[in-house]
Nucleic acid binder design. Structure first.
Lengths: 240, 240
DNA sequence: GTGGAATAGTTGTCTATACCAGTTGTATAT
DNA sequence: ATATACAACTGGTATAGACAACTATTCCAC
């Protein structure tokens, strides 16, 4: 399971191993994991190396330590992630609602100047433009338009764009999103917005514009969302 | 400088020492700090102990490491903090505007049920209720009402409430704010809001409700703000 | 029963050492 | 002048062992 002569450090291998065990349900939530000495023994590695792996998982929020007792699996990662970047799907799930979406259009178009700037690409380079209605418990909640550079995700189709895009990226491109900026603005529904969302012209709406970045600080997607203000409030938690 | 037989761990002493050096300007921004081996030598401690201290400061954002080059002091902590919790003052400064405020009222009242719940106190316990108009470049930007438990900050007066409240707390009570939750909502201006902000009834406004928590997870203040949507967008950055 | 000591298990701190892997500047060879 | 090689630094990974601090359990004396 752990390769000693691998270029990838032992502590990192152990991290991945423990994460795997958690995801596969072999280490249950709130349960103790094997002790540091036990890991050291079974994998024939030093206890300090085990500590390095566990320390990283602790600071990533997977585990928590308790002196004299042991090290425990934390509650679901999802619950923590919503202290910030959340996809619509996760957001709604965390509120106890059932999310769904309807694809309105799926296009590949040249980027206009503003979009190109945000996504740090050349004007007229191609982007996917994906429009959706987002529903929660089958009631319209938001209109969403996403722009994604074609170059970054060549294989995107109408079908797989329907799954969680983030998951698609992490699994197929082995990249993950590390940062996002959001701008939130209040406005008033125009005629097409009102019609799509089933509200009246002049009703308040919440505009959210998010840019997500990959690990290498490359901007990955620009999402403009229009939320019904009567049904949606934006919630977030900040630490430190 | 470092006491070996102290109950406080050596790595923690070293952390405090390095933080001090940074705050006193003895270690400049972007400059290299002494190497791990150097610290170990001068304080006669193990290099691994030095690493433990530096690791903590790295994960707290004070330092960054670069293999082969050295360890460097990060840019100001303030600049990082505004990727999240921001007071109005810091927020406006970061946008290049000049913030000011006018005190509308300063009361001590018994908390109603909802406020008491948010601040985790008993109904009818006393709270400060502080109403202000917030200005940016002398133009009205927001209406703000803050509720703070009297018990937590006994000495608050009209005068010192005018300074940055956060600074007051950190300096006089040596407590600091570690976490905050915000809820952001779009709405439309009612008559008194419109009048105070100099806009029309029915114009869009952004409602922000923030609860700040001290290190010990005690809720410290509840702030309800009403922003002019034509002048203010809420911006924030999320990492990981 | 209650309190307290002994014990065995946990994580926490710390040392001393070794070698690996990047970076940089300098000396040398061409 | 321009490469190339080397040396001397940096942080990164890993080992083995020691003792401290804390928790839970067991057992014994009262």
């Amino acid at each position: 399971m752990i390769k000693k002569n691998s270029p990838v450090p032992i502590y990192h291998q152990l991290e991945e191993y423990i994460k795997q065990q958690i995801e596969n349900g072999l280490l249950m939530e709130e349960a103790v994991i094997p002790s540091e000495r036990e890991y050291a023994q079974t994998f024939q590695i030093s206890r300090m190396t085990v500590r390095q792996a566990i320390n990283n998982l602790v600071s990533e929020g997977y585990l928590k330590r308790q002196k004299g007792r042991g090290t425990f699996v934390n509650k679901k990662k999802i619950e923590q992630e919503l202290q910030g970047m959340t996809s619509f799907t996760e957001d709604m799930l965390s509120r106890g609602m059932s999310p769904s979406s309807t694809l309105l259009s799926f296009q590949i178009i040249p980027a206009d100047k503003k979009t190109a700037t945000h996504l740090r690409m050349e004007e007229n380079d191609f982007v996917y433009k994906i429009k959706r209605i987002r529903l929660a418990d089958d009631a319209p909640m938001a209109l969403e338009t996403a722009y994604i550079p074609v170059e970054l995700v060549p294989g995107l189709t109408e079908e797989n764009s329907n799954l969680s895009l983030y998951r698609y990226i992490e699994e197929h491109l082995s990249l993950s999103i590390s940062e996002a900026t959001q701008e939130i603005e209040a406005s008033i529904a125009s005629s097409p917005d009102a019609e799509a969302l089933g509200i009246n012209i002049g009703d308040p709406i919440l505009l959210i514009e998010r840019i997500s970045y990959l690990e290498n600080e490359v901007p990955f997607e620009l999402v403009k969302s229009t939320f019904r203000a009567d049904r949606y409030r934006f919630v977030h938690t900040m630490k430190r």
